[in-house]
């Protein structure tokens, strides 16, 4: 049985905004699922609907086998949820925050102390356990928030953009915790705007745009949607005219499967074999242009969107059976 199952979910706000437009999801137990989208794409609305904070306008959702509309309390007691904004009581200590969560989720008092200690260890807050949360850094608060979402060892955990705004070190620590709980069998539903994050953590990713799922598959499949890594080339004189000529030059290279997009400082070339292709491209370009620099990087969400929405891109539909009705939203 699926841990999370959603069928044709629509959510329309009172002002008429159609935040979620017919989303269906089937997430098996134990999966690390990524819900990828830009700001305003509908990620948070969807996650709030899944955790019973919003009622779907139409469609059905079950979490752990319970219908979110008919049995909201059963859903609530069987899930952990971490909101996008850090949600802790700053006037309480770390231990008290976790204790309150333990009580709220009915953790037996015999198990409580041990559970609190285990969680404090998990999120590395044992040393600060009895300090007021208001004295914590942003990363520490976030870690405490994670701990409070796990007190009842929920089989499904929802994480809404858990690392947005954190420094790389804090982010990496959180990733480790998420991997740990997923390795222990917990189903994880994570929303993120970073492809890298989804790539690092998730077994499967759905990309949401304007309330609709536009792509669905493993991180590798999604990356192939983009068509590989990206080479950013900076031109010394990035005028519209030189950029146009540089694009034409690249396009003239027959052998490689690649696509070229203009950027502010030059061009971006996407190719499946970007790393081996790089030197050749640069050599060819250097014959007619002054190149200030170049860099090969992994595709970003922007690149995914470009690939998904760019009609001329031959890799556009590579990944899946996902609906591609993007024209209507443009």
């Amino acid at each position: 049985m699926a841990a999370i199952s959603a069928t044709d979910v629509e959510l329309v706000y009172a002002d008429g905004t159609r935040a979620v437009r017919g989303v269906s999801l089937e997430i098996p137990e134990g999966e690390f699922f990524g819900f990828l989208g830009a700001n305003g794409a509908g990620k948070t609305t969807m996650i709030k609907t899944l955790v019973t904070l919003l009622r779907p306008t139409s469609g059905t959702i079950t979490v752990n086998g319970y219908d979110v509309t008919d049995r909201p309390r059963a859903v609530r007691s069987s899930i952990g949820y971490m909101a996008q904004e850090t949600s802790i009581d700053e006037e309480l200590t770390a231990r008290e925050n976790i204790r309150f969560a333990c009580d709220a989720y009915g953790v037996r008092s015999a198990d409580r102390s041990e559970r609190i200690d285990t969680l404090l260890d998990l999120v590395d807050l044992q040393a600060e356990a009895d300090s007021l949360a208001k004295s914590f850094s942003g990363g520490m608060k976030k870690r405490l928030d994670v701990a409070t979402a796990l007190v009842h060892q929920p089989p499904v955990v929802f994480l809404d953009e858990p690392t947005t705004g954190l420094d790389p070190e804090a982010r990496n620590r959180l990733w480790d915790y998420f991997r740990t709980i997923n390795d222990d069998g917990t189903t994880v539903f994570l929303t993120t705007q970073y492809l890298e994050e989804a790539d690092q953590l998730c077994d499967r990713i759905s990309v949401i745009r304007d309330g609709t799922i536009v792509a669905d598959g493993s991180p590798a499949a999604l990356k192939s949607t983009v068509g590989g890594d990206v080479i950013d080339i900076t031109l010394t004189e990035p005028t519209p005219e030189t950029i146009q000529r540089a694009r034409a030059t690249i396009d003239a290279i027959e052998e490689a499967e690649l696509s070229v997009e203009p950027t502010e400082s030059g061009i971006a070339v996407t190719a499946s074999n970007a790393h081996s292709l790089g030197p050749e491209l640069i050599t060819t370009l250097a014959e007619s242009f002054e190149i200030a620099g170049f860099q090969t990087r992994s595709p970003t969400l922007d690149d995914v969107f470009l690939a998904l929405t760019d009609e001329s891109n031959e890799h556009g539909n590579a990944s899946s059976d996902a609906p591609m009705d993007l024209e209507a939203d443009q």
């Binding site: 049985m1 309390r73 007691s77 009580d103 709220a104 989720y105 009915g106 929920p154 089989p155």
Partner: peptide
């Protein structure tokens, strides 16, 4: 899955007291 594997619900008085 017939029952949630984790999480229980408190009696009303206990919920009151927690808050």
């Amino acid at each position: 899955m017939s029952s949630p594997p984790a999480g229980t619900r408190n009696p009303f008085v206990v919920d009151c007291w927690i808050n």
